[in-house]
Design a protein around this nucleic acid. Structure first.
Length: 267
DNA sequence: ATGGTAGTGTGACTA
């Protein structure tokens, strides 16, 4: 049995707990990493996960905004919440667990969206995003001796031309500007990460994980972006069985604007 | 060029 992991920006875990339950019943990953839970820790719906066999729930939430959670069938050996940019946002959570005999550090990240104007001098949100990216450079796939690593989350950047519906039309749109895409690719390269989803579904195939709410019909023109990612240390990359994007979830009732992304690794 | 929708929680913010 391979080890399976999924990441999903759920845009309110309480509002969409029914969709999450449906996803866990039908796909049953060993670990599910959620972003944008928008839920204070004391109100997190732990019981729903426990009832489905996910007895291990690590949360890093705050009221109203952001928030990440890692839901697991396997127990955690360590939990870390990193305060990126030291402003108290709940945007990171990492756990260490053992999958079979393999210790794995799993980082769950929600990178700032960055606002509308891609100029750090006039847009503090974009400045924050670039600062966050800079801080991510310290995240190394080989950071812990003898521990494999996975980094997942809504990274809010579509790094390759084939990760957006129109490279040309999005070059000046936050999420696909050169300073962001170069920055993210540098984090991958310097950190020694392996982009598992692009390993399984290589370019030039187009691939998206997010479609805006601001359109009557999300399928019209298929104007998506690949904002959600699964990276791993090279030892795990070599054992990748499959990776996939659950596109159909965008058509579920009252959907998130992001869909689940999954990977299976043969340990 | 603009505005379009969604969530939290009833304001204005974030995305």
């Amino acid at each position: 049995m391979p080890f399976t992991i999924a990441t999903w920006n759920i845009n309110s875990v309480r509002l969409r707990i029914g969709l999450v339950e449906h996803f866990l019943r039908t796909h049953a990953p060993d670990v599910l990493c959620l972003q944008e839970t928008k839920c204070p820790n004391e109100l997190f719906p732990r019981e729903a996960f426990e009832a489905l066999g996910y007895g291990h729930v690590a949360i890093h939430g705050q009221k109203g905004y952001h928030g990440v959670a890692t839901i697991s069938k396997l127990p955690f050996e360590d939990i870390v919440r990193q305060d990126f940019c030291a402003i108290g946002d709940a945007r990171h959570l990492s756990v260490r667990l053992k999958a079979g005999d393999t210790p794995i550090r799993i980082h769950n990240l929600y990178v700032p969206a960055g606002g509308d104007e891609p100029d750090p001098d006039i847009n503090v949100k974009f400045r924050h995003k670039l600062d966050f990216l800079e801080e991510m450079r310290a995240m190394r796939a080989g950071g812990e001796e003898g521990v494999s690593a996975i980094l997942v989350g809504d990274l809010n950047i579509a790094p390759f031309e084939e990760d957006v519906w129109s490279h040309k039309q999005l070059l000046k749109v936050v999420s696909h500007t050169p300073v962001e895409t170069d920055g993210l690719l540098r984090v991958i390269e310097e950190g020694g990460w392996d982009d598992l989803v692009r390993r399984a579904i290589p370019r030039p195939q187009k691939l998206y994980t997010w479609w805006s709410y601001r359109s009557k019909d999300w399928t019209a023109g298929d104007r998506g972006r690949r904002l959600d990612h699964i990276w791993a240390s090279p030892d795990l990359g070599g054992k990748l069985v499959s990776a996939s994007v659950l596109r159909e979830a965008r058509s579920w009732e009252r959907p998130s604007d992001h869909v689940p992304v999954m990977a299976a690794i043969d340990l």
